[in-house]
Design a protein around this nucleic acid. Structure first.
Length: 517
RNA sequence: GGCCUGGUGGCCAAGUGGUAAGGCAGAGCUCUGCAAAAGCUCCACGCGCCGGUUCGAAUCCGGCCCAGGCCUCCA
């Protein structure tokens, strides 16, 4: 099976074929930068990051851009005499970047700001007016939805239906709008608000409407037609519907955007998170309570088009299982690090290539994951992983495959295996695939190719060094005491270490220790 | 009023015609001086309810019940 994704445009699971072979162009609707990133945003952007990582795993070159809506009433409301609206926008954008990095969301090729593309937006409004898709009322430019036959096709909201609930505004807009669904392309700015000159008589100065930004920026940077347009489910209507109405008539292509993908929302115990209810959890706050990898694993455990029930206890439960995986990685890392480079080198390269099907883009791995004692398990895991991810980015099945893989490795005795090349192959296989899910476990010495693609580690790992010698000495003393069957003494030593947060496990090869959480 | 999801074991969650993945929690066993870790075994005769199609349905069709979302700024 080749990669397929659910396409909102066709309401179908479509085979994923980018316009330019080997290159995927993605535009993602970003935030309106007036408040910091919250847990819901985190889910959305973690999904897009995983999607991007999987495309890259599959051998595609990905060009993805994201926007900041930096001109908005809510931003201006936050401004005061000390901080102008642009400062508010910039500060919020900077915090978004920080939060994204903390979640290991890879950098986008570009972060566009709506106010940097005013000219492109004005130009687009002009064209829409010329083509008869828009009209001017009192200096405001409105899009004429009835001029676009396919209006409503993307979201399923037809112009005929859904007017009852809008009756209040209907009266208000009567005589101004030709149709209640007509939306703003450009509007005059209020008193003291930022305004741009357009050089037009009928709509000389003002600011852009929300929908025109994304249309203008995406087409300008990615081309008149591109592969994937993202955002989250709430953007489907009206935002994406309106974007199509604006862009399709001007793009000169049969189809403006090939694939529309809409990740579902996250909700808190059945209640939608919203600012009015006051149950918004910021990313910063979340990261104080859970590690980034526990969060990403938790996100991966539910399909992106399924509503995700969120609660701290659910992340805790999920990370209980996940720990078993990261723990194995740590154990393997420890064993491999102690060995010479020669002893752990994987001798036969290129076996991985045999797992590819002919018609697929070529994964860039050159490492031989499938090797030696655990090769069978690794091959099975890779097949299941690809099968799951090819089927509409099926992360939950990919995580299940990872659990089974890890269980098989444990069962095959990898913990105490002296066949280090085999251990190294499994280690790479596991960490490389966790990487796709946003779990980064880089080790410069053991897997430099992967480490090069990971975020730099913020030196926490070395903190234990000064204590290592002391702990090792105490464990030696404990081993002697156990040998002499002086269990009172050996348990005492263990208690002391445990009180200090050192977790001890006895293995056939001696005691193993780790710093607990 | 219109449009649209979803209801799977104590909890989370996969699974779109072939006889219920995975995780958490729970039980027993093995190993161990003990503990920890790991392993093994067990844990939904049933997938909201009622009908129907089919050799066969959690999966398709019809009806019903329930929960939720969107139609207004929202990831």
């Amino acid at each position: 099976m080749a990669l397929h994704v659910y396409n909102t445009r066709t309401r179908n699971l479509d085979r994923f074929v980018p316009q330019t072979p080997g290159v995927v162009r993605i535009y993602t609707c970003g935030l309106t930068v007036y408040a910091p990133m919250h847990i819901g945003h985190a889910r959305t952007y973690c999904f897009w990051d995983t999607f991007r990582r999987y495309l890259e795993y599959r051998g595609f070159h990905v060009l993805s851009i994201i926007n900041y809506t930096d001109i908005d009433d809510r931003i201006m409301k936050k401004a005061d005499e000390r901080r102008g609206w642009l400062d508010v926008a910039e500060e919020t954008a900077a915090s978004f970047r920080r939060d994204c990095r903390a979640l290991r969301i890879k950098d986008y090729a570009a972060y566009t700001r709506a106010t940097d593309f005013i000219d492109a937006q004005v130009d687009m409004v002009k064209q829409l007016l010329e083509r008869g898709h828009a009209y001017v009322v009192d200096g405001e430019v409105l899009y004429d939805v009835q001029s676009f036959a396919d209006y409503g096709k993307l979201s399923g909201n037809t112009l005929e239906g859904g007017q009852a609930g809008a009756s209040g505004r209907l009266a208000e807009d009567a005589g101004r709008k030709k149709h209640p669904a007509d939306f703003t392309l450009w509007k005059p700015s209020g008193e003291g608000q930022p305004a741009w000159e357009t050089g037009q008589e009928a709509w000389s100065s003002g600011r852009p409407g929300w929908h025109i930004e994304c249309s203008a920026m995406s087409s300008m940077l990615l081309g008149s037609s591109f592969d994937v347009h993202g955002g989250a489910i709430d953007n489907l209507f009206p935002h994406h519907e309106n974007e199509v109405a604006q862009s399709q008539p001007l793009c000169g292509q049969d189809c403006w955007v090939g694939y529309w993908m809409h990740p579902e929302h996250l909700d808190l115990r059945g209640v939608k998170m919203s600012k009015s209810i006051g149950n918004v959890i910021g990313v910063e706050n979340l990261l104080e309570r859970h590690s980034y990898d526990a969060i990403r694993w938790f996100f991966a455990s539910t399909h992106y088009r399924t509503k995700l029930a969120f609660a701290d206890e659910l992340i805790d439960a999920s990370s209980e299982g996940f720990k078993k995986i990261t723990k194995l990685v740590k154990i393997l890392e420890g064993r491999l690090s102690e060995a010479d480079e020669d002893a752990r080198t994987i001798p036969v390269p290129g076996i991985y290539a045999s797992l590819r099907s002919e018609d697929e883009a070529v994964p860039r791995e050159r490492e031989s994951f499938v090797y030696g004692a655990f090769g069978e398990s690794s091959a099975k895991f890779i097949r299941r992983f690809i099968e799951a991810m090819d089927d509409d980015v099926g992360c939950p099945r990919a995580t299940a495959a990872a659990f089974d893989y890890v269980n098989e490795l444990y069962a095959a005795g990898i913990e105490s295996s002296d066949d280090l090349p085999s251990v190294a192959a499994a280690y790479r296989c596991l960490t490389r695939h966790l990487y796709v899910l946003g779990i980064e476990l880089p080790n410069e010495a053991l897997y430099p190719q992967l480490a090069a693609d990971c975020f730099p580690v913020a030196g926490g790992g070395e903190a234990a060094e000064p204590y290592k010698a002391v702990i090792d000495r105490m464990l030696e003393a404990r081993a002697e005491a156990r040998k002499a069957k002086d269990f009172a003494k050996s348990d005492m030593i263990r208690d002391v270490l445990q009180a200090a947060g050192v977790v001890i496990e006895d293995t056939p090869k001696g005691a193993r220790w780790d710093l607990g959480e």
